[in-house]
Amino acid sequence: MVTSSRSSEADSAVAAWLFAGTLDDVWEGEMCAVDLDGAEVLLCNLDGELFAYEDRCPHLANPLSQGDLSEGVLTCAAHEWQFDARSGHGVNPASVCLHRYPLRLDGDRIFVGVGEDE
């Protein structure tokens, strides 16, 4: 059973929930990139739990979707920065963090919250 990841951001802060695809688009252990009204989003499915991040490395903004997802670690293809795909926290270097988007499921449909009110 697939579940959505918990978000630290309240649902009320989300300006829009956008359809990002279905569970068939991101199988367990895989990742995929989607463009949601100009927001480049990376979806990751780890052991049946979904996570959504901005699809750019905080180092030089290279797309993380061009990198690798292995054993729960996202590795940027450009300079091999690594991130915990469950939390978005940096593994190497540890001082960085990915921008996480709230995510929810409606059946097998994936929705990502973009345009949070600041």
Results as ranks from 00 to 15, higher is better:
Val2Arg: 13
Ser4His: 09
Ser5Met: 02
Ser5His: 03
Ser5Asp: 04
Arg6Ser: 09
Ser7Asn: 13
Ser7Tyr: 03
Asp11Lys: 11
Ser12Thr: 10
Ala16Asp: 14
Gly21Asn: 09
Asp25Cys: 02
Val26Gln: 06
Trp27Gly: 14
Gly29Lys: 09
Glu30Ser: 12
Cys32Pro: 00
Asp35His: 11
Asp35Pro: 12
Val41Lys: 04
Leu42Asn: 02
Leu43Gly: 00
Asn45Arg: 15
Leu46Gly: 06
Asp47Cys: 12
Glu49Trp: 01
Leu50Phe: 00
Leu50Lys: 01
Leu50Asn: 00
Phe51Asn: 01
Ala52Ile: 00
Ala52Gly: 02
Tyr53Met: 02
Asp55Asn: 15
Cys57Thr: 03
Cys57Leu: 04
His59Phe: 13
Leu60Thr: 05
Ala61Thr: 12
Ala61Ile: 02
Asn62Asp: 12
Pro63Cys: 09
Asp68Arg: 15
Asp68Gly: 00
Leu69Gly: 08
Glu71Met: 08
Val73Cys: 06
Leu74Ala: 01
Thr75Leu: 11
Cys76Ala: 07
Cys76Glu: 13
Cys76Thr: 08
Ala77Ile: 07
Trp81Asp: 05
Phe83Cys: 13
Arg86Gly: 11
Gly88Tyr: 04
His89Tyr: 12
Ser95Pro: 00
Val96Trp: 09
Val96Tyr: 08
Cys97Gly: 07
Leu98Ile: 10
Arg100Gly: 09
Tyr101Pro: 00
Pro102Arg: 04
Pro102Thr: 01
Pro102Asp: 04
Asp106Thr: 06
Gly107Phe: 02
Gly107Pro: 03
Asp108Glu: 15
Ile110Pro: 00
Val112Asn: 01
Gly113Cys: 01
Gly115Ser: 10
Gly115Trp: 06
